[in-house]
Design a protein around this nucleic acid. Structure first.
Length: 605
DNA sequence: ACAGTTGGCGCG
DNA sequence: AAAGCGCGCCAACTGT
């Protein structure tokens, strides 16, 4: 059963809709302030809360301490169904674009991204005459008092959530594989809930430890506009080493490169791995400068003030933000948290982290996707022994070192054509013909300009118009060699994209099922018994273990110390469950490395 | 003056 | 060793 939530002017509409998509009762209209009460009262019924965008509604519920068990995010589901080849011959896919296609994701409330949309300098007239066709969903109760109600709303594109849900359920039913699409959409929506919950709870962040890390590396925080002391020192050493004037700005690539050329360093770019090959007194201070500069600009004091001012990093995930189905993030760089600041991620007193990551997720996914029994067997754990698939490939006698196994598999999945990875590929193809054939077929489909799909039915986009134009022009009578080679290179490039899409996208589906299962299992563990210290997380997670971070194939759970073992067990069980959901009884293992630790930095991966 | 691009590097 | 996938962010630079 679905409960479709909608804005009704007089309040908030709640409309029951059955799973086949038929009305299952009259719509009720309740006051905005009553929504959390309704959701809380409904907890036992496991209704699927159906709304235009999870971030339009769920943050307000969480702010009232209410968790929702299941959801259907119409915007996310619409995007999947419109593109999926499984649903290509359905009314939803065959119709022209609707307002749902142009709906932009709603940023989480209260964060810098939301605040940026509200800045007074965005006065009328400052917007571009033509945006990219996106419209912004109307503001909700979640935006209380923040003045978002005057965000632009395209009133010519009325969104009718109940009608859209009916259309989507019909498309699923009419698709070539309703079961897979149903699972995909449920997982996608569960991911949206998890992302909102992680934003709400936040990643525990010790500003004092972060400041310690920065001060140790860079010196004390400089005045605005000034360079930190250590950077200034290094800048001087760089200038000295190449006899450059004090006015040389090492942040200016053209200037620095020219000065280095004059000094005869012999660098043709400033890339780290190219500089490392050179032998010159400027190289050492320059590499050190670049490392510290990166820390200072990307994760320095400004980042701390903006993204973790109050002991929590509230990361802004963009569910489905990557074409393959992986999450993206906006602001704060949640998915690029460098290892050298992870020491600042420290559990609350009496609490701990359970950090889990899936070992060699992508090759295991490939083995299962291709139903390659021999490859799956190489990754299977025997008597709890090795959890390392690459070691298993060596034991199976396919290649002679772990490094070769790894480079070969990465090359197969990414489309590498050079070096060790290309040398090893024939051996892999002989040992694991189904797996290699699957990625090769995906690459060739892409080269023909066709779509490819993941296990659960997320399909790749088609190449843009300019792609076809270049392909066409290569067939012209008078096409020059350069045009033809450009076309060939473009063809291979799209093939590498589709080759990787099936693996990366299916791995993303596994991860989505994994976190969906984790969040359900963690909630089922129940409340902390009295006597243990409550954490600093807001309700409804103050006395419960909860997800605080997700990174493609890795999760961090913040848990009362007493529950760490139980949480570890559930996280492992969830990985097994995700494997079965995607691949049924195909014998593939998804082992995790799990660490119970007070600091994220101590979780060795 | 402003928006978009580039080079480089962080993460998986 | 540094090209083969997917991203976001920063500062400097380029184009208008």
């Amino acid at each position: 059963m679905h409960t479709v939530v909608s804005e009704e002017g007089s309040g908030i509409g709640l409309r029951p809709v059955s799973d086949p998509g038929a009305p299952a009762g009259e719509q009720r209209v309740v006051e905005a302030s009553a929504l959390a009460r309704e959701a809380a009262a409904d907890e036992a019924s496991h209704t699927r809360w159906t709304w235009d965008d999870t971030n339009s509604w769920y943050p307000a519920l969480l702010a009232d301490g209410v968790r929702v068990d299941r959801a259907h995010d119409l915007r996310l589901a619409h995007a999947v169904l419109r593109a999926s080849v499984l649903a290509a011959r359905t009314a939803l896919a065959e119709a022209g674009p609707t307002a749902w296609d142009r709906l932009a994701p709603v940023p989480p409330p209260g964060g810098p991204t939301a605040a940026a949309l509200l800045r007074p300098d965005r006065h009328p007239g400052s917007e571009p005459l033509f945006d990219l066709g996106e419209i912004t969903a109307p503001a909700r109760a979640s935006d209380e008092g923040r003045g978002t109600t005057d965000r632009p709303l395209d009133t010519g594109n009325h969104l009718d959530p109940a009608a859209e849900l009916t259309a989507q359920l019909l498309a699923i039913k009419d698709s070539t594989d309703p079961g897979r699409l149903r699972l995909l959409l449920a997982a996608e929506s569960a991911g949206a809930l998890a992302a909102a919950e992680m934003h709400h709870a936040g990643l525990p962040w010790r500003g004092d430890i972060h400041d310690e890390i920065l001060t140790e590396a860079l010196g004390p925080r400089p005045r605005p506009g000034a360079r930190p002391a250590k950077l200034e020192d290094l800048a001087n050493r760089i200038r000295d080493a190449i006899d450059a004037p004090p006015t040389l700005n090492p942040d200016s690539h053209p200037d620095l490169l020219r000065a280095m050329e004059y000094a005869g360093v012999g660098a043709r770019s400033l890339r780290k791995w190219e500089l490392e090959k050179l032998d010159h007194p400027v190289i050492a201070p320059l590499l050190e400068y670049k490392g510290l500069y990166r820390l200072y600009t990307a994760n320095g004091w400004n980042w701390l003030d903006t993204w973790a001012p109050d002991g929590r990093f509230r990361m802004e995930y963009v569910v489905g933000g990557v074409v393959t189905g992986r999450w993206a993030s906006t602001g704060g760089g949640a998915l690029q948290l460098p290892h050298n600041v992870r020491r600042a991620v420290a559990a609350d007193p009496g609490w701990t982290f359970v950090v889990a990551d899936a070992a060699q997720l992508e090759p295991r996914v490939l083995a299962a996707l291709a139903r390659d029994e021999r490859m799956a067997a190489a990754g299977r754990t025997k008597d709890g022994a090795s959890t390392d698939m690459y070691a298993g490939i060596v034991s199976a006698g396919v290649v002679d070192s772990r490094e070769h196994a790894k480079l070969g598999m990465l090359g197969a999945m990414y489309g590498g054509t050079t070096g060790v990875s290309a040398q090893v590929l024939p051996r892999l193809a002989r040992a694991f013909p189904q797996a290699i054939d699957l990625v090769e077929r995906a690459a060739r489909a892409g080269e023909r300009g066709e779509k490819v799909s993941t296990r659960l039915g997320r399909s790749s986009p088609l190449p843009g118009d300019s792609w076809a134009a270049v392909q066409g022009s290569a067939f012209d009578e008078d096409a020059g060699a350069d045009v033809q080679s450009r076309a060939r290179s473009q063809t291979r490039s799209w093939g590498r994209f589709t080759r990787n899409f099936v693996v990366q996208g299916t791995a993303a589906e596994w991860a989505l099922c994994w976190i969906a299962s984790i969040r359900r299992r963690l909630w089922a563990l129940g409340e902390l018994s009295t006597g243990s210290p409550p954490g600093l997380a807001p309700a409804p997670f103050d006395r419960r273990p909860h997800l605080v971070f997700f990174l493609h194939d890795e999760v961090v759970v913040h848990a009362p110390a007493a529950l760490a073992e139980a949480v570890s067990h559930e996280v492992r069980a969830a990985a097994d469950e995700a494997g079965r959901l995607l691949f049924g009884d195909f014998p593939v293992d998804f082992p995790l490395s799990v660490a119970v630790t007070e600091s994220y930095a101590d979780a060795k991966d």
